[in-house]
Nucleic acid binder design. Sequence first.
DNA 1: GAGTGAGATGTTATAGCATAACTCTTAAAA
DNA 2: TTTTAAGAGTTATGCTATAACATCTCACTC
Lengths: 154, 154
Amino acid sequence: MNTKKRQAIKERLEEAERVCDENGAQLTELRRSVLSLILEADGPLTAYQLLDQLKEIRKTAVPPTVYRALDFLIENRLVHKVEQLNAFIPCNDTHHDHHDVQFLICDKCGTVAEIEDHAIAHALAEAAKKQGFRPSKAVVELDGICAACSASNP
Amino acid sequence: MNTKKRQAIKERLEEAERVCDENGAQLTELRRSVLSLILEADGPLTAYQLLDQLKEIRKTAVPPTVYRALDFLIENRLVHKVEQLNAFIPCNDTHHDHHDVQFLICDKCGTVAEIEDHAIAHALAEAAKKQGFRPSKAVVELDGICAACSASNP
DNA sequence: GAGTGAGATGTTATAGCATAACTCTTAAAA
DNA sequence: TTTTAAGAGTTATGCTATAACATCTCACTC
């Protein structure tokens, strides 16, 4: 990992600390470790991939260890679950409303891009309203080929 | 099950037969049985719920039996998978483009409504285009409270 | 300082979801 | 007739997630 990325991760961990403080939640060493692993990863990680890595620094780790940490991180808007992959990625912007986030999943390279498109969010809200449906959560995930992979494989 | 529903299911099985014929696919007895169970159900069914029911009429059924049938039915646009529930529901309209379907999942009563909202589909397509992303599939699922449950629990 | 309560983590076991890999049968194509 | 391909059977296993109960820690209070 290069210096720049290491610095970016450090900043995001500090931001996470602030967010948790504001929420009256504790970013414990365990939770911080799990978040750090997710931030360091190049792409989405499954719970068991996280577990394998976590075991190296915390030998008592078992599945509930990881799932509890993930639940906490998701509740505090530090991590997203990608439903189609059963995998987890960092949240890019702790300020946005998690209702209004969408994911672009590249089938070629596996990267998941997080976007926040208000036209989509608005269309979803309108459609729900039309049906008398009161949404509490939205899962919006597009599968396909990302720009980079389209360019290299035309 | 009342007569009306039985008739509706019969019609949908006949329609499924036509669709498969057009696709050069075979709606075998097994696949027809699985589709029928999904059509008869009041709500989404998991693969193992289907398996339990299927065993009553086909004692050799095991998980791959069900998953293969489901794969076939999804490919032929007769069934949808609801990602958040790991469960399966019938497709309401075999003509529409599966890219352009959305689900409204009621957290209270468990029903899943399938809608086809072109404003959402359009917004998704635009957002993808903006990113140079070429989508092949869209998963759009809203969790919340349906109109009926809102009315009864104000 | 002993007791209490809440939150975090440890621990064991199991439930729930999905597929790999190989076999057998059957029916149509060559 | 041999070959091939699709469907289904069979066995085993891998992956994903949670239940339930025990223990620890630390702040608070009596």
